[in-house]
Design a protein around this nucleic acid. Structure first.
Length: 193
DNA sequence: TCTAGGATGATC
DNA sequence: ATCATCCTAGAT
């Protein structure tokens, strides 16, 4: 049970919305780790100055322009990884960054999986997974419970201030009531019930 | 609760 | 030089 290629072959913003609630599955070396996606960011194309594809085709960004449904993993700040899924049709350089999941299986109950770097560390995702086909049993996404529109919240993407006006586009989507959404700098903690 | 600074290496 | 981050320390 995996999301088919046709799922990814749509605009990044659509995929970012539909990814909420789906399961990210990593199976390697006898273990299987699963997280439910609760936060995503869309990087919509070459014209999007926050998108790595805006740098043009390079060895690193080439995968973004390739067929949909592949992984784009890169190293950031020398120590953390970010996991993306390549979206839209071949030739369009776009992707969706998975920013947070909630532990479902194979992870400690209290594992930190909020934040793109932390979730990659928890699931064991590294540069070795870059360009993988997401139809692979070892790394794929699976359907989950549908997420009603009322639970989806939107806002500006994190950490892309260099992108000028594009930094303000509300391309970050998350589950309103999830306790596992990442905490951007200076975001106040949720009020107690 | 918040801010500042540093770790660390691929990329171009 | 830059960077789609995270953690810790120290101030408040």
């Amino acid at each position: 049970m995996r999301l088919p290629v046709s799922f990814y072959a749509r605009p990044a913003l659509t995929v970012a919305r539909e990814l909420l609630g789906t399961h990210l599955v990593v199976e390697e070396g006898g273990w299987r780790r699963v997280g439910r996606i609760v936060e995503t960011e869309a990087y919509v194309g070459e014209h999007d100055l926050a998108c790595h594809a805006s740098k043009g085709r390079t060895p690193r960004t080439e995968v973004l322009f390739g067929p949909p449904g592949r992984a784009y993993v890169y190293l950031i700040y020398g120590m953390y990884h970010c996991f993306n899924v390549v979206t839209d049709v071949e030739g369009v350089g776009s992707a969706v960054l998975v920013r947070a999941v909630e532990p479902v299986a194979g992870l400690p109950e209290d594992a930190r999986t909020d934040g793109p770097g932390r979730l990659c560390r928890a699931l064991g995702l590294t540069l070795a997974h870059n360009r993988w086909d997401l139809q692979d049993a070892a790394l794929h996404l699976a359907p989950g419970e549908p997420v009603p529109e009322a639970r989806v919240e939107r806002g500006p993407r994190i950490g892309v201030d260099y992108a000028g006006e594009w930094a303000r586009e509300p391309y970050r989507l998350w589950l309103r009531d999830s306790q596992h959404v990442s905490r951007p700098p200076s975001r106040r903690r949720r009020e107690r019930p």
